[in-house]
Computed example of a mutant assay.
Amino acid sequence: MTTPVLYTCARSRGLRATWAAEEAGVALDLKILPFPPRYLAPEFMALNPLGTVPLLVDGDTRMTESCAIAHYLGTREGYTDLSIAPGEQDYGAYCDYTYHADATITFPQTVYMRFAIFEKDKGLAEAGVAYAKWFHKRLVKVEQRLEGREFLCADRFTVADICVGYALILAESVGLDEGVPESLKAYRARLTAREAYQRAFAREEEGRLALAS
């Protein structure tokens, strides 16, 4: 098998992929790019014309969606405890929460970040605040799902937890934590205490610091 190459920016949605690889024991050739790569690493556009991260290249396979990449890495050598197979308990919930993570939760975060952080000079900060409130309201589904549960699906840690967990990690780092329920902060703490997460975060930070040196 080839060694997958992951192009990403430290602490971006690509952390889902780096984390999944560490959980699954998949060796990655990790390429940390400056943010935003479309301006600071223009050669990356030849690999991914969208200019977005992450990008996974694994032989003929090319992927740009972080949750899909996390699932791919978790199942690259067959279904494991990181994923839920068709016919298994909570298969539907696994699919739902894995997609829910980006489509419903991370989306308003990215709009908030654009208008309230990166492009404040455009006078659209109020739009950012509105999307922050949207993000907080959209946490209710995860909050209710975790009542009486340690993890989202099948009574075990899966890629769905990686995908949803990243959105909660991002909330803390970009100033959206005030509206996150305490139960979800405790869930996030359980996830980030995992050794595989710590290794993934450290790998990305090492790459980020190397860029700055």
Rank of each mutant, 00 (worst) to 15 (best):
T106Y: 13
M1W: 14
C67Q: 02
L33T: 00
G123P: 05
V53G: 04
G179I: 04
L170K: 11
F135G: 05
G59I: 12
L40Q: 15
F118P: 02
L184Q: 06
M1S: 15
A85G: 05
G51M: 08
L73G: 01
V174R: 03
Y94Q: 07
C153M: 04
L56E: 13
T18L: 02
M113K: 04
F35M: 05
Y112W: 13
L139R: 01
M1E: 12
A46W: 03
E206P: 00
C153R: 01
G123E: 10
Y112L: 04
K120G: 11
Q89Y: 06
A27H: 11
G87N: 12
E204A: 03
S83V: 06
E65D: 15
R188A: 10
S183H: 02
A171M: 02
P37I: 01
R149G: 03
A46K: 15
M45K: 07
R156A: 12
L191Y: 11
W19A: 04
A93G: 08
N48S: 15
Y166G: 01
I32P: 00
F118N: 11
E77H: 15
L15G: 04
A125S: 06
M1I: 07
T64C: 11
A154I: 12
R208W: 09
T158N: 09
D102S: 14
K122S: 09
G207Y: 05
A116V: 02
A70R: 01
W19G: 01
A196P: 00
G14W: 02
F107Q: 12
F135R: 00
T104I: 12
Q144P: 01
C163Y: 02
E205L: 07
Y72A: 01
L30T: 04
K141N: 02
P36I: 01
E143Y: 02
G14Y: 08
E195G: 02
S83F: 06
Y72E: 03
P4H: 13
L6A: 14
Q109L: 10
L28H: 07
L73N: 13
E150S: 10
Y72I: 11
A21T: 11
Y99L: 14
E22D: 10
A200Y: 07
A20N: 06
F44D: 02
E172F: 01
C95V: 14
L73S: 06
G87V: 02
R149H: 15
T18I: 08
E206F: 07
E43G: 12
D60Y: 10
A70G: 06
A116C: 06
A132D: 06
I169G: 04
R114N: 05
Q109I: 15
F115N: 08
G207Q: 08
G179Q: 13
I69F: 02
E65V: 10
L33W: 00
T110A: 15
A171H: 03
H100R: 11
G148Q: 10
V53M: 09
